[in-house]
Structures are given as C-alpha cells and as structure tokens.
C-alpha cells in the first residue's frame, strides 16, 4: 500500500508511532565527531522528520541498536546469576538498503550459526521494524550494487520511504502499521527504487580460483606497512559481529559484578591472543587478509551470500586511507592474472 505525507503529516505519523516505538534514525550531532568542529553522523532516537540526516552517510551503522557495543549478559551476586528481564520496548529503525541487508548477515551469525540462538540479540531483533530509506544515488565510497545489496525485498521491511522536497512517499507492508499510515495520509501508487550503479565498482575474485597461494601474495605485505590496527574498519562495519566476553567486579563489593560482552575486531591487538600470550595473527597484513577473506569469501562459503554489503564505511573511516574496495579489486586482478 502506498501513501503520501506532507512534512507535517509525516511528523504527526512519527508522533503517534513514538507512543509505541523507539524510533532510531541517522542524526547529526553538532561538533561531536572526533575532530573538533566536525559533526558526528550516527544513529540516535528521533521524534521528527527534521532530525533525520539524509545528506551524509552515518559513521556508524544501526548495528549498535540490536548488537550493543557493550552489553551485560548477566549480573552475579555471591555466585548467583541474574539476567536482566526483557523489556517490551519496540523499535523502528530507519536505514538504507545496504544496512538492512547487513542485518541479514548479523541474523545468520546470531540466530543461525552454531547450535543455539543468541538470546540477547534475538530479544532485541524480534522487536525491530525496519523503515528502509530509498537510496538511489548513494555516496562516493558505496559499492552495494557490486555486493548485490542495493535492493531489498518487500518482506525485508515494514515500510519503504522516499524522502521528497515537500514530504514523504512510502509503501507499508506491515499490517499493524498500515492502519496508522492510512489514517494520516492519502493513498498513492508507490514503486520502490534502488540504486543501479555506484561510483565505485568492485569485481569479486572468482571463488574457484581463490586458492591459499594468494595468502602469501605481497598484496598483504603492503598492508603490513600501512595498517595501524586501529580497528575503525571493524567498528564502523554494519556486518562485523565479533565480540569478547569479560567480567567485572563492582568496586564496593567484591562478590557482585557482571559478565558482559563488547565488540571485538580482528584488526585489533589481542583478537587471537590465547591464555599464555600466543597470538595467531601478529602481522597487520595478515589481519587485513583475514578480514578481507571473511567479508568476501569465508562467510559466503558457510551461508549463501557474502558478508560485506558494500556500504563503504570502512573506506570512509580508515585513518591510513586504506580502501577496502581497492583491496578487493587488487585481489581480483592478481587472481585473474595468476598469482
């Protein structure tokens, strides 16, 4: 069902949705990025259309809403374990097709990989409705078309929105929300549009030809020199799902504390460190290789699509100007030309 809202009308819709949902969207936080006087574009709660930042890509993705950067697994007191009870909070997340597709990757790991579901992810994920933002021109570093994550299927979203000069046109799939939408807008015909060509294109290496010989290639040695293992490419990535589990004791009472998890990144020191100090990937070029292979090969071997969605954030944030899309293309060329 398609609808058209004036700006006011859409704000009224948001207001009524806000009664039942926490609404997250990319916003602009004035002067809050790392460098002074730079704005931080990131996810936060919104109440009105004006707060949504649509002109720039967000530095971090919506991942942190469903897979928080730091999340308590349980508290303990005198050896008894207590998990925080579920909240009934429901969420609406505004996001672009790439980021919607990134959640499909997270779903694979947290809900399908291994013998059990991750209950912490699941209990948040179940309460999310996606509002996909139509994205037809993208940004400079995007390569979602090459990664086949420029499009979404109707079942992937509750609503699909086109932000226009004087309002919002959209399509609603979610039956619960349809009532809400239809009571406040006029019905129109709506056909979602998707970007068909990015400025950046990557050619994925031929899976058949991707042998371990390429692991020894000097391509990676270049990154040994360039990468500083800061981990920004991991933390900005909407599909990186790794985490570390840690315990803390609360200062006051050595008998109580919590076990929590927090994001981990395969570029960061300590990722493979075992008790006793042995590390499996000391070299930064090896870490670049490991990440690259995970994003465009390993994940796809286990599941039916690649992990990387081509959002380009890792390119945007790398302080050493390492471009992931360039790396993929270099790898393909090497493989084409024979290692």
């Amino acid at each position: 069902m398609g609808f058209n809202f004036s700006e006011n009308g859409f704000n009224q819709l948001l207001e009524s949705l806000n009664q039942d949902y926490q609404i997250y969207a990319p916003v602009r936080k004035k002067n809050k990025d790392s460098f002074s006087a730079n704005d931080l574009i990131t996810y936060d709660l919104i109440k009105s259309l004006e707060e949504i930042e649509l002109t720039v890509k967000s530095k971090y993705s919506a991942k942190e809403i469903v897979f928080p950067i730091r999340e308590t697994l349980f508290h303990f007191v005198e050896g008894e374990q207590f998990i925080a009870s579920d909240t009934d909070d429901k969420y609406i997340i505004f996001l672009r097709p790439c980021d919607r597709n990134a959640f499909k990757r997270l779903d694979k790991i947290f809900l399908e990989n291994g013998p059990e579901e991750d209950i912490y992810y699941k209990r948040l994920r179940e309460n999310v409705k996606f509002f996909v933002i139509e994205c037809t021109s993208g940004f400079d570093s995007c390569f979602c078309v090459s990664m086949e994550s420029n499009t979404v299927e109707a079942e992937d979203y509750a609503a699909f929105l086109r932000f226009e000069e004087n309002g919002v046109s959209c399509e609603v799939n979610d039956q619960d929300l349809a009532v809400e939408f239809s009571s406040q807008a006029e019905e129109i015909k709506f056909e979602p549009q998707f970007i068909e060509k990015n400025k950046v294109e990557v050619k994925l290496p031929d899976r058949e030809k991707l042998t371990n010989e390429v692991f020894e290639h000097q391509l990676w040695t270049e990154y040994s020199q360039r990468c500083i293992a800061c981990g920004r490419c991991n933390t900005s990535c909407p599909t990186c799902s790794c985490f570390t589990v840690k315990d803390v004791l609360y200062d006051e009472n050595k008998k109580s504390g919590e076990r929590f998890r927090r994001w981990a990144g395969c570029h960061i020191d300590g990722f493979t460190e075992m008790a006793g100090g042995h590390n499996f990937r000391e070299d930064y070029g090896d870490r670049m290789r490991y990440k690259t292979m995970h994003k465009i090969y390993d994940f796809g071997e286990r599941f039916d699509f690649d992990m990387c969605v081509g959002c380009g954030r890792c390119d945007d944030v790398c302080p050493e100007y390492i471009s992931f899309s360039k790396c993929i293309n270099k790898l393909s060329t090497i493989i084409e030309e024979g290692v």
């Binding site: 790991i109 291994g114 991750d118 790794c242 981990a264 395969c266 990722f271 075992m274």
Partner: peptide
Amino acid sequence: RKMHCGLGKCGH
C-alpha cells in the same frame, strides 16, 4: 583457539 562463546557467535 581463543574461544569466548563456544557457540559460533563471537568469532574469535
């Protein structure tokens, strides 16, 4: 290996 979850989630 360094296994933080044992459940196929943490990636370590």
